[in-house]
Design a protein around this nucleic acid. Structure first.
Lengths: 237, 237
DNA sequence: AAAAATAATGAATGGCTATTCATGCTTACC
DNA sequence: GGTAAGCATGAATAGCCATTCATTATTTTT
């Protein structure tokens, strides 16, 4: 979408102003009114952008970023290798876009679900449930998160420190609230807890991803983990 | 060491038996008595093997397996690129060797420390402490573990399922023992707990590795995490 | 101290694959 | 139905880097 509008403006500004006679003006008007918002080309582009991202998620998820080949992604998306470069700058750009779009969605989702709830204990449970549900519903994405969030390369680190932290900080927010309202032990450091909690969930994801025999249901797991934490961090009633 | 002894046997069996006259017999005896156990060549080989592993740990740790170049490792080890191939089959072999040797050591260490202790609660604490200490004392190794345990490639997965599980199963052993002796809640599933516990610790490592400003001490952290878990999984007294 | 055996070197090789681009195809408009 | 604009294609390019190997250095043996 982004690159599409840019493209459009490029063409617009590149043609000398003197050429904007009546015909062309009408054409541009037409273009603005019909093509840009919902026109055919536009939709197709968005389609492929999406198709490529979906394919990339699958391929990155199963082979990891480095072992994944552009041609794998192209084949999976049923698109020529070169086509990918009409939509993304390079391989790494695909990964970044994947993160930006998906983590953003995830944050929105979870925040919406949390807004329904007041009790910090319930909130923690809801967070756990959402996070684990992601693993089921978007198995491939979860695998990418699993693998690539760890890849240490300075550029990735910087990125991670931007986006990922937002997500994890939702937890410390909950802990904080719980401490303020006297439900959680006040001496615990939210900075540690959030990490521990995320780590526990994340490790469960890994379990899920690596084993195909899912011995426990998602609800059992969310239940058990948040219950441990709640018992662990709550003040005695 | 391994490849060295193989080498020796290769030479031994390759020379026809008829050649073993008195002189050569004495030579072999000499070789066996002096060179093999502590001779010069042997030590030097072990030296370089080790030097390369140390260098590799550093390089893998800072750049990740895929971004690490053999030439980086060679430079770090102060050795020619080609030399590495006298000690390892290929790049991936370096990584595997690293794991085998280090995780094995770690398991031995932790088991020794645990043997001193009876109380499952204390054991859990000790495990946490050891694991986190690893992150401090062998920062680079910890980074490699962090990064590469996640790398999804079928060969790695298989490997992981062999060695790594041994390590994590130490936790479930402790939980089990605690449940049998009526200290831990019997309805909890050790299969989940061990993962959650490991995940929490592991996430703490990540925190440590990514942030340079170490806001919390290792003991604080081990304390806090095991305390949460202990509260969480213990039966009310 | 020469010869033989072993080890180390690093430049050259070769395979692999991200990226490009000349070409052909589709669609949208007249 | 012809034309132009934008799209898609995939073979060719180009760069990177693991691995090899002819050569040099070192160590051991006689």
């Amino acid at each position: 979408m982004n690159s599409h509008s840019l493209f459009f403006f490029y063409y617009l500004t590149a043609s000398p102003a003197i050429h904007i006679i009546r015909n062309e003006f009408l054409f541009i008007l037409f273009f603005l009114l019909f093509l840009l918002p919902s026109g055919h080309t536009y939709v197709k582009k968005a389609d492929k952008h999406q198709k490529i991202l979906v394919a990339a998620t699958k391929v990155f998820g199963s082979k990891g970023f480095f072992s994944a080949r552009i041609s794998d992604i192209a084949k999976e998306a049923k698109v020529a290798d070169g086509t990918i470069y009409l939509y993304f700058h390079n391989k790494y750009d695909i990964l970044l876009t994947l993160f930006e779009e998906e983590i953003a969605k995830l944050i929105v989702d979870i925040k919406a679900a949390l807004a329904q709830e007041e009790d910090p204990r319930r909130k923690l449970y809801i967070f756990a449930l959402h996070h684990l549900k992601l693993v089921i519903e978007k198995k491939e994405l979860a695998e990418v998160l699993q693998m690539e969030l760890r890849q240490s390369s300075d550029s990735v680190k910087e990125y991670r420190i931007t986006k990922f932290v937002d997500y994890v900080n939702i937890i410390s927010g909950i802990i904080h609230q719980g401490q303020k309202s006297g439900i959680f032990r006040p001496e615990l450091k939210p900075g540690i807890i959030k990490r521990a909690f995320f780590g526990a969930l994340d490790e469960m994801s890994r379990l899920w991803i690596l084993n195909s025999d899912h011995a426990y249901t998602i609800d059992d797991t969310a239940d058990e983990i948040s219950s441990i934490f709640l018992n662990g961090i709550s003040l005695p009633a």
